[in-house]
Design a protein around this nucleic acid. Structure first.
Lengths: 207, 207
DNA sequence: CCTACCGATCGGTAGG
DNA sequence: CCTACCGATCGGTAGG
């Protein structure tokens, strides 16, 4: 837990993620990162060849960690509701435990221009296609099997994106504590599932 | 419509809002703004005494415009559902017509540190207290009158914040066109309202 | 991981 | 709204 136990490279990742996510990419200087890590600025260039590279690696790591944390739940066993609820819980838990990763992904999606912006957008687009693509398939299958009735799969996917992004944004940038959204997840889930199916939701509290 | 018809001050506001919202505050330079406006950098300081002042005024204008566009709907006549739906439509329309205002508010909420960050957070906190405060009262009153049953007012307020922020974020930062969310608002509203009340929503298409 | 340094650009000012 | 300029800081490199 103590910073002294972490390698310089790990401290560098952590401090860079913290500064980028709270001040933005352009608002963070390499000198400031170095100061927090406790080394001279020039030493950072032993780990990354540029500031752009540093952001790109943090973004890739964040996207990979998010996928690894949430993806398995959707492909698990059980009803559509159980799997989707498990996916949501895994995502919200990830955001509680890794707020900086969520922040980095958001800032990358919104604050970067130029040639770096193009690389960032390519990474995000690839991730979104995989993630939203599998959700769209999920909803289409649920509609086909009759587990969700009277709604269009595209509208369900749209509503799901709104729901999840709304939770994540409020979790990591809002004034309320991030844990609150995890604690109220059964209620939020119930609203979502009833809205989508007309039936009360059953959000199992066990993992 | 043409830039040539706008005053220098108006062009300055527009270009600064565009650059801040696409590159972030720290990623935007006064020289770049000046170049787009078509004047020398020093001339900008006839309108604003600092870069911080420029951002603060853009933020204040954006918050005021948002309030003016959405607030009246909530206090209008009609059922709780009609008023809340009108409030949502006004908000989503505002985001279609003023995406940069929404972007500025989001970036201010997430990307600024230091002394500027404190001023920005004070502005946002005041706005949030007024806005979320009136929503919390709205839901409490709807529960008390029995227009919404079986749900806690605090949970309703939480879900509402998730719903609205999710739409706005996807509208102004997502890959789909912003108009899509306006076009699909009846469906999104139906999901929301049915989730909250168990009854199908009736989203009137007329203003 | 350090010292020492580079050219470029930063926000901002003086004075007109 | 301009020219001319300021000290400070930027990302990055050389060389060890």
């Amino acid at each position: 837990m103590s910073p002294a136990n972490l390698s310089t490279h790990d401290r560098l990742r952590r401090e860079a993620a913290g500064l980028f996510s709270s001040r933005g990419y352009g608002g963070t200087s390499m000198a400031e990162i170095a100061q927090r890590v406790g080394v001279r600025k020039a030493s950072l260039y032993n780990y990354y060849s540029s500031k752009q590279d540093l952001l790109l690696e943090l973004l890739e790591d964040s996207l990979a960690a998010w996928e690894a944390a949430s993806r398995p739940a959707l492909g698990g066993e059980g009803s559509s509701e159980a799997r989707l609820a498990a996916y949501l819980r895994a995502t919200v838990r990830f955001a509680v435990e890794n707020p900086q990763s969520v922040r980095i992904i958001r800032l990358a999606a919104t604050q970067i221009g130029g040639s770096l912006g193009r690389k960032v957008k390519a990474l995000l687009r690839r991730h979104e296609q995989e993630s939203i693509g599998s959700l769209a398939e999920f909803f289409a299958a649920a509609v086909e099997r009759g587990e969700i009735e009277g709604a269009d799969a595209a509208d369900l996917t749209l509503f799901w994106g709104v729901f999840v992004d709304g939770i994540l944004i409020n979790q990591v940038f809002g004034t309320a504590k991030a844990e609150r959204y995890l604690a109220r997840l059964p209620q939020l889930w119930d609203f979502f599932w009833r809205g989508v199916t007309g039936r009360a939701g059953g959000f199992e509290r066990q993992p």
